[in-house]
């Protein structure tokens, strides 16, 4: 038992990386997904093709492969290394998750009744006002459950970055296990991941409730 406390500082060091990756990915991919979603819906066929291809590639290949690609293939081809392992992980995760979130946004926007656009138009609202004042707020209710889902997946996906050597919680844990032949750190790591997903579940539940406040009664 005492030994666990000696492992903890190292594991927390890894946890810090995990949490930073998690927040950077969310903070950048959530907004980045909006122009991607709008690009996919663009009436300009070239624009929509480019964005759809982007989403197709990032959703259609394993995240681990994308990590390898950006960490090994890119620097070798360009013969220059711009990002270290952790920065590469952040970049890959942001690009990957933006593709998933874009699809969620798109589905949400398509669920808005056409009458809402007609009403906004008839009142003289601009396209921008319609998007940010009418469409997106209504979309929130629809997109929150799938976004919460992806967010929980993200917590677990962060463990993938150990494949390019970034020192996250998973990497730290497995190196302790390798060094000491003691598997208790794996259980500790599992508990830490569970705590993180548990917190997210509570937050998403609250948000869903907030954005459903205008629902019909008696559902």
């Amino acid at each position: 038992m005492e030994q666990i406390f000696s492992y903890l500082p190292l594991m927390f060091e890894g946890l810090e990386k995990t949490i930073i990756l998690f927040f950077i990915t969310l903070a950048l991919s959530l907004p980045l997904a909006l122009p991607i979603a709008l690009g996919e819906e663009s009436k300009n066929k070239v624009v929509s093709f480019i964005f759809k291809t982007y989403v197709f590639i990032f959703r259609g290949t394993p995240l681990m492969l994308q990590l390898f690609f950006f960490y090994f293939f890119f620097p070798i081809v360009l013969n220059i290394r711009i990002f270290d392992d952790f920065q590469t992980a952040c970049l890959t995760f942001v690009l990957n998750y933006a593709a998933y979130f874009a699809e969620i946004y798109r589905g949400g926007m398509n669920s808005i009744d056409k009458g809402q656009y007609d009403a906004a138009f008839a009142l003289g609202l601009s396209k921008r006002q319609t998007l940010f004042g009418i469409v997106i707020p209504q979309t929130m209710k629809v997109i929150l459950p799938p976004i919460s889902n992806e967010t929980i997946t993200l917590v677990k996906d962060t463990a993938l970055i150990m494949v390019i050597g970034a020192a996250d919680l998973m990497k730290m844990t497995s190196s302790i296990v390798n060094r000491t032949n003691d598997i208790t750190p794996l259980f500790v790591a599992a508990v830490i991941y569970l705590i993180m997903t548990f917190i997210l579940t509570i937050i998403s539940g609250r948000l869903e409730k907030y954005f459903s406040r205008y629902d019909e009664r008696g559902e």
Binding site: Q116, D118, A119, A122, L123, G124, I134, Q138, K141, Y214
Partner: peptide, 22 residues
């Protein structure tokens, strides 16, 4: 100004917000 068959009120706004928004 237009009034629609299916009202098309903005469901995420209260009545007064619907009227004040535009």
């Amino acid at each position: 100004g237009m009034v629609f068959q299916h009202f098309n009120l903005f469901p995420h706004m209260t009545c007064i917000e619907n009227i004040m928004y535009a």
